[in-house]
Design a protein around this nucleic acid. Structure first.
Lengths: 199, 199
DNA sequence: CCAAAACGATAACAAAAGATAAGAACGGGT
DNA sequence: ACCCGTTCTTATCTTTTGTTATCGTTTTGG
């Protein structure tokens, strides 16, 4: 196990500790299953139609998760450094993933198989607790995302993005991806930007 | 503890068993905290702005969960018999609930305090597992709801409702509530219905 | 270093949804 | 049986978004 892997594993453990504190013994169960992968721009970490079985942790780079339908893409989420990333729904349900996860830049990830995590859930109290708290965290994020789509107009969603915690997305991601994230076309988003500066 | 409460508790246990199997000991920890409440039509089980601390299980009746903004309402979910129901996000985060939960008919619920459940999570492996699996279940439902809002046009969402697992909603809920569930106005939904029968 | 592709702004037109108001159908309660 | 409130439809008008196409500008890859 080389230096960069040890270093990366430490970052992952710190991230996981934000959800639940694991004993050294519990943590060490995951350690041997970790590996590092590099992705080129536009390479996929998870592919629509394929059952996902890999969980990643972004060490460097930007990712987007998106659906496709009739050749059109809709982005559901962006991921940045120090975030867990997976087609989690596919892992959980063991059904083919409805989403793709794509690197938007050169990227480096720590990865491990979901089946390993699932086994840890049932064997260790600390991991089980992490599993609950992580699912609850994702749940809250999804609820907020859904509420935004249901309650706000496209213009309000853009403004919310401008002023919210996620402001950094605008600096790091091309606008046409953001348009699909807001559920509108790039043309419409350009108009919205225009309306806003006019005010 | 009277007969109807015992009967209701049995139903709840069967429902919970669909997520994780609890030992009798684990189950008995919850039992003394259960009670039955009746709600009249339009009465609220959870109120916007108030921290929720109650989890319910619908014995009879129909509920909706909805946001309000500028006096307008948007329904996020409908609940029917034999479903767990709570402003779960508020329970988890201990922040004021962004949503209301309203009875759409005379209703009967089994209820218990969320803090009791939370304590069970950390004390019993079976409950902790239930906590994870339930959160994952909600997560999957939310992801599908979000994907619908992001990927489908209002007309497609209505058609998906017509043809999907949730078809029964249409029979049991007034249409103007369904319109807000689809993220459109009742007028617009009426037009969509009109377009569809014309085909 | 250059050609090709990607990106973003803008214009013109079509399609859809929101706002508002008016009216029909239905049900519950007195 | 009758009134009143709720629900749903329909019509009109306005606003917004989608669609398609064009045109600079920037970025990318060979």
């Amino acid at each position: 196990m080389n230096d960069s892997l040890i270093q990366a594993a430490l970052q992952l453990r710190q991230h996981i500790d934000q959800f639940a504190t694991l004993s050294d013994e519990e943590w060490n169960e995951l350690l041997p299953h970790l590996s590092i992968i590099h992705l080129k721009k536009h390479q996929l970490l998870a592919t629509q139609g394929i059952v996902a079985n890999q969980v990643g942790f972004v060490l460097e780079g930007v990712f987007r998760q998106f659906y496709t339908k009739d050749g059109e893409e809709r982005t559901t989420y962006f991921f940045f450094d120090q975030q867990l990333i997976a087609a989690y729904m596919s892992c959980i349900t063991a059904r083919p993933s409805p989403v793709n996860i794509e690197a938007l830049s050169e990227a480096t990830c720590l990865v491990f198989p979901y089946p390993v995590l699932k086994a840890l859930f049932s064997q260790y109290a600390g991991w089980q607790e992490f599993g609950r708290l992580f699912a609850e965290y994702v749940m809250v994020a999804l609820e907020e995302r859904m509420a935004g789509l249901l309650m706000l107009s496209p213009e309000e969603r853009y403004l919310a993005l401008l002023e919210g915690d996620q402001r950094h997305i605008l600096q790091r991601v091309p606008q046409h991806y953001i348009a699909t994230y807001l559920g509108i076309t790039p043309v419409s988003m350009s108009r919205i930007r225009n309306r806003i500066v006019a005010k």
